[in-house]
């Protein structure tokens, strides 16, 4: 009884503050090794949140908790809760298949399936039954490719292998693949680290546009990128969340000395 009341209250609260996902006391263990120490973080709806910090600070690990990708690693154990629209995603009643459809992911290295461009994008909608016939599939594929800014470049070779595209194109294909299932959140794990500056600019542009309709979490190594694309920034260090604030504030007036050092390039 009271649980339901608390839930209801929380959810109204979150709607007021427009929180899409919330992590409370999230710790991650790989076997005996602890990789993340009680992280609390709120991810605002329809905004871009950047996770920054030096290598091995736990930002990717944290992100993989948000769509339970850590489940695929046998030795991995997670404590704490993560909610999506006030719903605990680690609740046994939650279907991980549904969760991952709602929380999409783009990886560090472009990983298109060894199939045609068309099939790459159509894969998600098909397995989730979002399309009923060829025409609907065509529409979804075109819409997703268009939103990923790739359609014009590939419309004449939709049935050629996705692996034949350039690196930047491949990454945009992966973004198209992710948005084709209409996720609510898109997680991006250093999406530009394998790309050249021009391709990076294109993808950043794209992230900017996608913000209107999606909640985006992006892990990045590049301070400039975080500053360019995000509204909120969270700084991780050695598995701890050091500071979390509006991006402008983090980059102009950080509270924590660690953050300051990192941003000014004194370590990292």
């Amino acid at each position: 009884m009271s649980d339901a009341a608390v839930e209801a209250r929380l959810s109204t609260q979150e709607e007021e503050r427009d929180i899409k996902m919330r992590a409370r006391g999230v710790s991650v263990f790989y076997g005996q090794k602890q990789a993340l120490f009680g992280v609390d973080l709120e991810i605002p709806r329809h905004a871009v949140m950047a996770l920054i910090g030096p290598s091995g600070c736990g930002k990717s690990t944290f992100m993989r908790c948000l769509n339970r990708m850590n489940d695929t690693i046998d030795s991995c154990r997670i404590v704490g809760d993560v909610t999506l629209d006030a719903e605990d995603i680690y609740d046994p009643a939650i279907d991980v298949v549904e969760l991952r459809a709602r929380v999409g992911m783009v990886f560090q290295k472009p990983n298109p399936f060894p199939k045609s461009i068309y099939e790459n994008v159509a894969y998600g909608p098909r397995i989730h039954g979002l399309v009923r016939n060829r025409q609907e599939t065509d529409e979804v594929v075109e819409r997703s490719l268009t939103r990923a800014g790739l359609f014009k470049e590939v419309k004449d070779r939709l049935h050629e292998p996705g692996t034949g595209l350039s690196g930047g194109q491949q990454q945009r294909l992966c973004i198209a693949r992710a948005i084709a299932v209409s996720p609510e959140v898109i997680l991006m794990d250093e999406p530009c680290s394998a790309l050249d500056p021009i391709a990076t600019a294109t993808v950043e542009e794209l992230i900017h546009e996608l913000r209107e309709n999606f909640t985006i979490v992006i892990v990045t190594h590049s301070m400039q990128q975080a500053a360019r694309v995000s509204q909120r920034t969270a700084m991780f260090h050695l598995g701890n969340l050091v500071e979390e604030a509006d991006t402008d504030k983090i980059f102009t007036n950080p509270e924590d000395p660690l953050t300051q050092d990192y941003i000014t390039g004194r370590f990292g």
Partner: peptide
């Protein structure tokens, strides 16, 4: 077949069976 391709499929919400039949097997 690289792990990244498996993860790509899981991240889209595919079940293990779907990943095997539609991604791994063709690859």
């Amino acid at each position: 077949v690289p792990r990244a391709i498996r993860e790509g499929s899981f991240a889209l919400g595919a079940t293990k069976g779907e990943t095997i039949r539609k991604v791994l097997l063709p690859a």
